[in-house]
Design a protein around this nucleic acid. Structure first.
Lengths: 317, 317
DNA sequence: TACATTTACGTAAGTACTTACAAATATACG
DNA sequence: CGTATATTTGTAAGTACTTACGTAAATGTA
C-alpha cells in the first residue's frame, strides 16, 4: 500500500475516494446497529424532507448537492418503502412535492438519535487528530472554488513549458519539420495548394533568398511550431506559415512565435505586418488579435483559395 | 447547500465523496490537457506496472488498494489500448504478469511529467490551507484503523442507552408486555406450550403468589425485556422467561436484567440459581455464561419440550 | 498418489451515483 | 393568442468501482 506514499499528494483524489468508501461501508454497519428502516444512501433525501417538508425534487437535489435524477430515484425507493409520499405541486403541476408518511414520521426520531450519535463519534474522532479533516475539507473546497485544480496544474505546466520552448532560426535541416507542421493543419482543414507546395518544399528559394525569415519552436527536443516572415512592398512583411503541432497546442507556442516574428520584423525595419487567414480558424484569429493584428481590406488578392480574411499590424517607429 | 453545515461532521462521509468526485472530474480535465493516451482511472495500475514491472494482477491490486477484479478489468482495457502486455507467470501458470509495451514505455515520460505537475499543484494547494488535508486524511485513516467508526458510534449509543434503560418490578398492568415479549421469541424459534400459556397469561397466580419475582426493562418509554425468578427447593431459584425485544437487542439489556435478577435472588437469600435453555440459542447461552452460569446435569426433568440444556450459578453466602 | 483445500484470476451482476434524453408543463414574446 | 423557449421531472444508459461466483492451477494431507 506504499502507492500513496510514493505518489504523495498527486494521489489526493484516489485517497479521498478510498476514505469515503471506507466511511460508506462503516455507515452501513451503523445503520444496521440502529433499527431504522432507512438505508444510508436514502439519508440525505430523507433528512431534507423531514426537516423541511413539502420540498420539490429539484430543491432537495440542490440542498444535498446531488442531481435531480438521483433524488428522483431515491424518492421512488422511499415511496416503495412507504416512508414518503409524493404529490403534484399545487401551483405548478410539474413539481413533485415530497413529504413524510406516518411511517416516515415514526422513523424520524430514531434516525435523529442515530445522527446525533454519529455526530458525537465523528467529532470525537476529529479532535483525536492533529489536523482537522472537517475544516481541511471546507478549506479545500473553498480553495478549489476560487481556482480549479485543472487550471492550477495548467499554470504549473505552462510555466515549466515556457522554459523548455525555444524559438530558433531556420536552417536547411529543418525543411522537413517546416513542411510537416504546415501540411498537418492545412490538410486537416483545407487542401494543399500548388503555392503551398512550392514554399514548403523549397523554403530557401521562395522565402529565405527573397529576404524572408523562418522561425521554429522546439519543445522537449522536438520541432512543434513554425512561422515565416515574407517581405512585401513598402516596408511590409507578411506573417505566414504559422503552424503549431496539435500535440503542443495550449502551451502558448503560437504566442511565442508571433512575438518573436514581430520582434524580428521590427529589427528588419518593418513598418507593417500583414497576414491572410480563414474565418474558420477561430483560435488562430484570436491569437492574431491578441498579438495586435486587426482586420483590413486593403490587401492584394491572395494566391491561396482558403484565405477569406486579411489582417494587419502597424508597427510605428 | 446548507445541508452539510446543518449536519456538521455527521455528514463527513458524504462530504468526502463530494470532494473526491470533484477531484475526479478535475483529473479528467488535467488528462485532456496533456496528450497522454491514458485515462485517469487507468493511472494507478499503469503507474505500478511502470515503476515495478512484471507484477501479477493480485499484487497490483494490493498495491493500489483495489480489488483484483478492478485491476483485471483495467488491465484488459490497457491491453486493448496496446499500453501493456500480459503473460502467464513462469513458475505459476495462474498468474497474469503485466508489463509495459513499447507504446506504454513511450507514454510513461509524459505521464510522469504530468504527475509531477499535479503533485506540485496539489502541494501548493495544501500549503494554501490552514488545515492540511493530506495529513488529516492520513491521521483519520490511522484513527479508523485503530477503532472503526461503527464501533465508536456503538460505544456512544450504548453509553446513552444505559442511562435510559430502567429495570422495574412487575405490576399487573405489565402482564400484556410480559406475555408479548416472551411469546415473540418463543414463537420465532419454537412453539408456545401449555406451560408457557399458563405462566404468561397468569403471572400473578403462577409466579408472584408462589414467592417468585418478575423484572421488566424499559427503554425510551417502552417495555423491551423481562425475566422471572421462580422459587424451587433448597434455596434455589429458577431464572426463567428471559426475553429481550429484537428491536432493543445489542443494548446490553439482557445483561442488566440478569444482573438485577441475581441481585434480587441474593437479597432473597438464594444459594443457587438454575435455568433451562436450548443450545440453538447461542446468544442467550453466551449471556448466561458471562453472568456466571455453568452447565449442569443435576436439574429435574423440564416441563418444557424446547429445553435441552441446564445451567446453574452458585451464589455462595 | 489421490483428493480436498487454497490461491489467482476473469466474468457477470450489482451499486450508487452520473449524464443524456424525453415528456409534460410553465413562461416569454411577437 | 399561438408558438418558441425554459423549467421540472422521470427514465435509460453509462461509469468505476464492488461483491459473488466459477475455473484452473498450486498446495496440503492422508
Amino acid at each position: 500500500m506504499d502507492f500513496f506514499e510514493q505518489l504523495g499528494p498527486a494521489a489526493l483524489g484516489s485517497r479521498l475516494r478510498r476514505l469515503s468508501e471506507q466511511m460508506t461501508a462503516q455507515a452501513a454497519e451503523v445503520y444496521s446497529l440502529y433499527h431504522v428502516p432507512v438505508e444510508p444512501r436514502w439519508f440525505p433525501v430523507f433528512y431534507v424532507v423531514a426537516t423541511e417538508p413539502e420540498r420539490p425534487v429539484g430543491e432537495i437535489a440542490e440542498a444535498i448537492g446531488q442531481t435531480h435524477a438521483a433524488v428522483s430515484q431515491v424518492v421512488k425507493e422511499l415511496v416503495k418503502q412507504d416512508l414518503v409520499r409524493v404529490q403534484r405541486g399545487e401551483a405548478d403541476l410539474r413539481r413533485s412535492v415530497v413529504s413524510l408518511t406516518e411511517k416516515g414520521q415514526a422513523a424520524w426520531p430514531s434516525l435523529q438519535q442515530q445522527t446525533a450519535d454519529v455526530r458525537q463519534a465523528t467529532e470525537a474522532l476529529l479532535t483525536e487528530t492533529r489536523h482537522n479533516l472537517w475544516l481541511a475539507l471546507g478549506e479545500m473546497e473553498y480553495a478549489l472554488s476560487r481556482q480549479s485544480l485543472a487550471s492550477r496544474v495548467k499554470a504549473i505546466r505552462d510555466q515549466r513549458a515556457a522554459g523548455e520552448v525555444h524559438i530558433i532560426d531556420y536552417a536547411p535541416q529543418y525543411q522537413p519539420d517546416f513542411k510537416r507542421l504546415n501540411a498537418e493543419w492545412i490538410e486537416r482543414y483545407f487542401r494543399l495548394e500548388a503555392a503551398d507546395l512550392k514554399a514548403l518544399d523549397h523554403p530557401d528559394e521562395y522565402i529565405i533568398q527573397r529576404g524572408g525569415h523562418i522561425l521554429l519552436a522546439s519543445y522537449q527536443g522536438q520541432m512543434v511550431g513554425t512561422c515565416a516572415l515574407i517581405p512585401m512592398v513598402d516596408a511590409t512583411y507578411e506573417l505566414a506559415k504559422m503552424a503549431v503541432s496539435p500535440a503542443a497546442q495550449g502551451l502558448g507556442i503560437g504566442w511565442r512565435l508571433g512575438e518573436a516574428a514581430i520582434a524580428k520584423a521590427r529589427s528588419l525595419g518593418a513598418q507593417r505586418l500583414y497576414l491572410e487567414s480563414n474565418t474558420k480558424l477561430a483560435p488562430a484569429l484570436s491569437l492574431y488579435h491578441k498579438l495586435g493584428f486587426r482586420k483590413t481590406v486593403s490587401g492584394p488578392p491572395s494566391p491561396y483559395e482558403r484565405c477569406n480574411i486579411q489582417m494587419e499590424l502597424l508597427l510605428g517607429s
